[in-house]
Design a protein around this nucleic acid. Structure first.
Lengths: 310, 310
DNA sequence: TAATATTATGCCGAATAATGGATAAGTCAG
DNA sequence: CTGACTTATCCATTATTCGGCATAATATTA
């Protein structure tokens, strides 16, 4: 291994640096020293023979040559993986690591469990599960798969619809005992609402009656939360009424810790999609996990077959 | 660099072992310890997850998976090279190493000189020049380009015709003084012939007169040589008459150390071809050398434009 | 302008990996 | 059956890599 030889590791480092635009960020991400990143990039440039990254002290951008080399490198690394997959093909189990991004609450309550089951079936597949409610740039973060709730903005990604997430109005028995139980939509205006700050239009609720009639009622309250699990805590603590995804509260409903309000009125469902980075969609283990998640998630109570209905 | 990670080096080792069918042979070729080769192959197999080579103590063959992986690996390494070439493209000089195989005499007298000139123009390109009169398996020996004199057997290789190598009957003045100068083809039967043992049909000579008439005369002598340069020595030492490629003796003719015999009768020319391993034909430096050699060799006295004439 | 963050570089001790040789075991040819 | 050659494995030595730190230079931001 000559000091100036092209290496997968150096190539990977370069790719990541090109994507993130920062040496130190990649150093932190990889958990290695910053000098190592500098060294790897320099060594790769020496091996290739031209500067690949144009680095100022504040930003790292690709040179024209680097841009070409980046595209080729990505393709090469993909081929390397596919070669392994293909060789394993008949014999042996798929292996490698998948990076998956998901909203925090759904991840904690469901995806994590599914991932555990997946890894039981495929012991050689590593999974890097990133739970955050922030919209991440999949490519930038090196993610293979993302689960997204709600309307989509991103587009260059492969999409797989998983269904519609049913939402319910819920509250704790304590709260209902104290404040009374709403019977018609307009009753809500006299109640305390727990709102999700990261959901657009949380100031009103659109309810649809069994007959199809629509009610739009104001929805207010003293508590706004941007994290599903914290909202769950708030519901349990009798802080008010919340429009909750069924997957968020199903166990609590079953245990009698929460109750459904205005069950005859439907809240708009929210589409649940899986986004797949196209370059990784061909990798065997990614395909496996995609299929597995699609199947398992469809079986989660509250996830309905995808026929947009609101 | 984890111990069980896929590495270009391990990949290269595997490819070479697969091609040669022997670990120790590759160890010798690479100039490393035999245990290193064993280790590299084992590590690659661990990284991929399936056995790639089926090894007995006497022979190494690819498994079915290994065969697939081999094809992919070759493609990957080629892409790696092309990526560097492409990145260098605009800026910088091509670099890397080319391995070229050539017959010994032609190599010593001409190709080596051309290679030196080529390297003067392209300081970053390394050349591994292998001079032997044995027909080598280009892929097996890891050769990029081969120069071949005479009819071709191999076929899966890209072919570039360089021309026809003119041959002459020559002898030293001393010899001619001692034995007389042949005037008509039949005179040859009374002379001492220096024959090339590695040329088929060296027991007779086919001469074509200026009028187009053909003469086939026996050609015999006490000396057979399988090396062009040794034949050159033999001619100089007045050992007899030889049918020699013009490029082999041009300098000696010019210096008056040899003379042409029966100049009005033509010997069949021999095709001179360049064979290029297709996988390497796309690499920039290989293309460069191919063009350079094609141009320069065409300018060597005795190499005529390719219109098969015999 | 000052403060801050980022990159380039050198150095060093520690950890890690690579190396080649020796040995054992196995296979093929004669 | 023997000899020659090949591969697998172990082991001690050697080489390399790594991370962190310090420093300098530089650009962005306040």
């Amino acid at each position: 291994m000559d000091k100036s030889d092209i290496t997968f590791e150096r190539m990977r480092t370069f790719i990541r640096v090109a994507e993130r635009g920062s040496l130190s960020a990649v150093a932190r991400e990889f958990g290695v020293g910053q000098s190592t990143i500098t060294r790897h990039v320099r060594e790769l440039e020496e091996a290739v023979g031209v500067p690949l990254l144009s680095r100022t002290t504040r930003r790292v951008t690709m040179t024209a040559e680097g841009s070409r080399y980046y595209a080729n490198s990505v393709q090469i690394l993909r081929l390397v993986e596919q070669a392994s997959d293909e060789a394993r093909g008949t014999r042996g189990a798929p292996a490698g690591t998948i990076r998956i991004s998901c909203t925090a609450a759904f991840g904690v309550l469901h995806v994590s469990r599914l991932i555990f089951a997946f890894q039981d079936r495929h012991p050689d597949i590593g999974v890097d599960l990133s739970l955050t409610d922030e919209r991440v740039d999949l490519v930038r973060e090196g993610v293979d798969i993302a689960l997204r709730l709600g309307p989509l903005t991103d587009s260059s990604l492969k999409l797989r619809a998983l269904g519609q997430s049913r939402r319910l109005l819920v509250a704790s028995p304590d709260y209902l005992a104290a404040r009374g139980r709403p019977v018609v939509p307009s009753d809500l205006s006299r109640h305390e609402g727990i709102r999700m700050s990261n959901v657009a239009g949380s100031e009103t609720l659109a309810l649809q009656g069994v007959g199809g009639e629509r009610h739009t009622v104001p929805f207010a309250g003293r508590l706004r939360i941007d994290h599903g699990l914290a909202a769950r805590q708030a519901m349990l603590a009798a802080r008010g009424i919340a429009p909750a995804h069924r997957w968020l509260v199903d166990d609590l409903l079953a245990a009698g810790l929460l109750e459904t309000i205005l069950a005859d009125y439907a809240l708009p469902s929210v589409p649940l999609n899986m986004l797949i980075v196209p370059e990784r969609a061909g990798v065997a283990r990614v395909r496996l996990l995609v299929e597995f998640l699609a199947e398992q998630i469809a079986a989660i109570p509250g996830i309905e077959k995808s026929i947009p209905e609101h």
